[in-house]
Design a protein around this nucleic acid. Structure first.
Lengths: 280, 280
DNA sequence: CCGATCCATTCCTGCAGATTATCGATCAGG
DNA sequence: CCTGATCGATAATCTGCAGGAATGGATCGG
């Protein structure tokens, strides 16, 4: 069997996302019959049924679920290949670091200073985005500062910079605001924002804080992320939530000396005690 | 710019490998002009020069070197997607573990026993291959036992099972056989086999041992791999070689419960002291 | 200077991958 | 029960482009 084409994978992914051939076709900018035929051909070539179709509904099979996960990885790798190649070829080489606005826990200035002391490194450019891990996987960025939901780390290498206790962020006037500690069960009735819940809609920490002040949400975050805190908010430690880690992540197959330098710099900034550091 | 197709990446990879359009075209089973045109189009689409061509030689540019690395990752991910999907869809689900013949350091029976005590796991199938990491990356295997040359681990997650001192394996009659320890410099004149030097040609440990006994090579290996030792060979500790680790590796984005169970079983077999183990 | 080597260009063809039109199955509503 | 709406599959047809064959043009060895 010869190799799958990325077009087929993209078509499959669209159908797997939409579970609807018409909408998926529209998203791909083609007509529905073409998509139906492409998926049928994909199934024939793999010798596997990917969707259970009735005239009313489309559902993924077990094999389809496997391909949905694998296709995402593969398509990300292909886009990353193109983007990294373009960045390498289009003069002006830079190291692109992605982070969520306010998501550096105040560590960035120290990291930058340490990075700039490294010899022979590329200029550092910072890109702010709510979904840094995606930027990394698709090749828009060379490294990212992010908090550690394990499922975002698939296919990436990472260095833990610091680990912080989780606190709930509440309006100062909230009934639970006076407590000395909380459990997740206490927040059951609230609209809870918990990383990485809505990377699309939530673009910055300050925006999130604003929503909390308005009483629209409460959040559970690593403590450092909450400072400085608006005076209409308060924080309460969470007793039953694992501490959350701030990581510097980079593509698992990176060989860039500048990425290595940034990892050294970030480790040095986060652990000032260590005088030298060797990549693992 | 729309997405690169895997066909283009495969063509590029062939030219990057061969540095010769004619041979690369033959390898791809197409004519040379078609390949030239495809590469030109790829360069146009990326807006980047990938090769410096003269009428006598072809060389990669800097951007071409980046794409050569990225293309390998992307193509592996695509093949893996297809293979894993087929394995998921074609009934008879199994967990495939890859290892080099004799490369389990005698640990396999204990791992297998521990694995079979895990609840709800798939039947385990073992595939022997000299290049286990490749099987893993291309989706032929779900996990692999391998020794730790760091560059083979890109894109994989791994659990260290044991770390062993390195020893030189010499014919019993070798001039250095009586030494109590050696340095790499002592072996400078020898035909040295050191992992992962020749994964293609070297298929089993016993074959390697045979070559050493014949005086064709000497090897530097983790100590456990050398037992049981043929009586016409001897081992001498290496003073200046880092200890070598035996790892259980799996794809970085694996979510399979059986892979997790195998990781637990392998860790239990390697560290009998620990009574329970949580994946990191 | 001639022949060998090797990539690029030109021109042509076939088929993969689209399109539009239509069908058949399923379900909700009156 | 019909009827109409929804939604995927099929049929018939068209077309852009991947690929083939022939050839050109640059470079180098002898």
């Amino acid at each position: 069997m010869d190799r799958l084409e990325t077009r087929e994978l993209a078509y499959f992914q669209a159908v797997a996302d939409e579970l609807h051939f018409g909408r998926a076709a529209a998203r791909m900018g083609i007509a529905q019959p073409a998509l139906s035929k492409a998926i049928r051909q994909l199934e024939r070539r793999l010798g596997v049924t990917l969707f259970e179709r009735t005239s009313r509904a489309v559902a993924l099979t077990e094999a389809g679920r496997v391909l949905a996960r694998e296709a995402r990885v593969a398509l990300d790798a292909v886009s990353a290949a193109a983007l990294r190649t373009q960045r390498a070829g289009t003069g002006d080489p830079r190291l692109v670091l992605a982070m969520k606005p306010g998501g550096d826990a105040g560590l960035f200035p120290a990291v930058l200073a340490a990075y700039e002391r490294e010899p022979d490194v590329l200029p550092l450019e910072v890109v702010f985005d709510a979904d840094s891990a995606r930027l990394l996987r698709e090749g828009h960025a060379d490294a990212a500062l992010l908090y550690s939901p394990p499922d975002e780390l698939r296919g990436l290498d990472a260095e833990t910079l610091l680990t912080e206790a989780a606190v709930a962020v509440l309006p100062a006037a909230h009934p639970l605001a006076g407590r000395t500690s909380l459990q997740m069960a206490d927040l059951a009735g609230e609209t809870l924002h918990r990383k990485p819940a809505e990377p699309r809609t939530m673009t910055s920490i300050s925006e999130l804080m604003h929503l909390i002040a308005l009483g629209r949400k409460v959040a559970v975050l690593p403590r450092l992320l909450t400072t400085p805190l608006r005076d209409d908010l308060t924080t309460v430690p969470m007793a039953d939530v694992q501490p959350i880690s701030l990581l510097l992540a980079w593509p698992a197959h990176s060989t860039s000396p500048s990425v290595a330098a940034l990892a050294r710099a970030a480790a040095a900034a986060a652990h000032p005690a260590r005088t030298s550091w060797q990549p693992g």
